[in-house]
Amino acid sequence: MTRIDHRPSPTATDLATVEAALATLAEPAPPRLAHITLVAVGLADDYALIDSPVGPLRVAWNGRGVSAVEQAPDDRAFELRFFARTGRRAEHRDELPLTLRRAIDRRLAGDRRARIDLDLRGGSEFERAVWLKALEIPRGEVRPYGWVAAEIGRPKAVRAVGTALGHNPVPLIVPCHRVVRSDGTIGQYSLGGPENKRTILATEGLDPDELEGLARAGIRYIGSDTTRIYCLPTCHNAKRITAAHRVPFRSAAASESAGYRACRECRPRVALVA
């Protein structure tokens, strides 16, 4: 390009021709490259619709993981809300990546081993602890807010747990619907309200009416008079107790004074503090 030779020889001219030709070989990158790159590093997101028991939901993801699950009336509303929360643009896609869609299907069907990376940036340390704890609650079971608070070592932060679950950016995947009020009633739900929470719990095999019926009757725990272990009512161990051996308790103290010990899986005792 920089030909200093002032006496152009045929050779020099041809080299200059080659250089000039090479200089035209730069080419603009395909327009999608920038967005794809930003998504890969988690500075922008893609989203697509999925079906759910409560109707179509928008799921956003980036290279760090799933970043949003929302019920929104349309794309525009979703994008605005997403931007307001994360400061990032989200672009509509027709489909979720296949592996992600499969993992979400498996997770919603109750397989907790289905690996789904989550992008929980923006959550406080406390909020993340609450969300990760909710992930431990098996499908078909519920835990009180107080249980979550106690399990993360903040037994007095029951209300804050409720607030944190309300801010859960990825409902359904982080099953905040499995956390109910400490008195056993269903409680609030960020994904479209309490009715949706009941619907989702019902699709997971729980009967919300039965649950609230127990709560109204003041029953918080179920014990087995054969094992002398007491559980939270929806613990899979409690569900296995046959009707003849089910012993209802109103409080953990009552269970323990009757000589029962707490189940090691649902750890009902921690809810006692709340």
Binding site: L25, A26, E27, P28, A29, P30, L33, A34, T37, L38, V41, L43
Partner: peptide, 22 residues
């Protein structure tokens, strides 16, 4: 970094693509 990275992509994506393409 997060705020400015998009500008880096804007400024350098074309040349990195050209280099790779050629």
């Amino acid at each position: 970094l997060d705020g400015a990275f998009e500008a880096l992509v804007g400024a350098h994506a074309d040349r990195l693509f050209s280099i790779s393409l050629r």
